[in-house]
Amino acid sequence: MEGFWTRMALRVWVVLVLLFLFIPILLIPAYALNSSKIQSWPLTSFTLGWVNLTLNDPEVVSAVGLSVRIALVTTIFALVLGSLAAFAIHRTRFFGRDAISFLLILPLALPGIITGISLRSSFTFAHVELSIWTIIIGHTTFCIVVVYNNVLARLRRTQGSLFEAAADLGASGLQTFRDITVPLISTALVAGAMLAFALSFDEVIVTTFTAGAQNTVPIWILAQIRNGQRLPEVNVVVSFVILVTIIPVVVAARLTGGSGAARVQAGR
């Protein structure tokens, strides 16, 4: 049993760690709504001016549009490929199955710079012009993993006899898939999709190497920070990105009982 002071000290420590982690994140939205043009304390007065300015900036609007499109298409690819891979690994036993499972997970653990450079060289070698599609391919490599992991974990937790029971009751393979498999893995699919979307939306490194003239949101932010002219707008965009990425992660964590969020932290 710890004593009273030990318990109090531990609580204070937890609070300090949480503050350390989250104050920087909360600072940005505060700056975004502050009327001062520079990031400094004390905050002067509340304004929606920067938000207005940002919303009417065609550069920002096109960057957000591009990022959303990339994230959506990436998510769809990841859903299809990731869940198919999970079914295959779950259902079959073959030589080299563990190796393939490892190779599927590897892109998430691989430093983005390696994925990025490799893809860029390959695209150049194959004379593929860099475009939104090369970015999507780059993102898909690691987004497949989150869907794959979620679906596979769910399949492993599902009683195998359920699929046998469906067949036993006369259901064809397709009916079993529609009536049993899909409903049972649906929350895992949604969670995987949300994580994939969040990962793709704020990805920088792979995007840097696989983008041509395209500016995704993170790339645009980096450029603005470097030239330092439009920091208030950056604050607004960053606040938006925080929302877009945190909400899906929280929802995904709810759907999978916490494992989703843990996986994202471990992966990136």
Binding site: Q159, S161, L162, A165, D168, G170, A171, L184
Partner: peptide, 20 residues
């Protein structure tokens, strides 16, 4: 014949009821 084409039905040891 596969299970779905056979006139048998099974009561499974773990019941295998569809949870959803």
């Amino acid at each position: 014949l596969p299970p779905n084409a056979r006139e048998t039905n099974t009561v499974f040891q773990d019941y295998a009821l569809f949870p959803h």
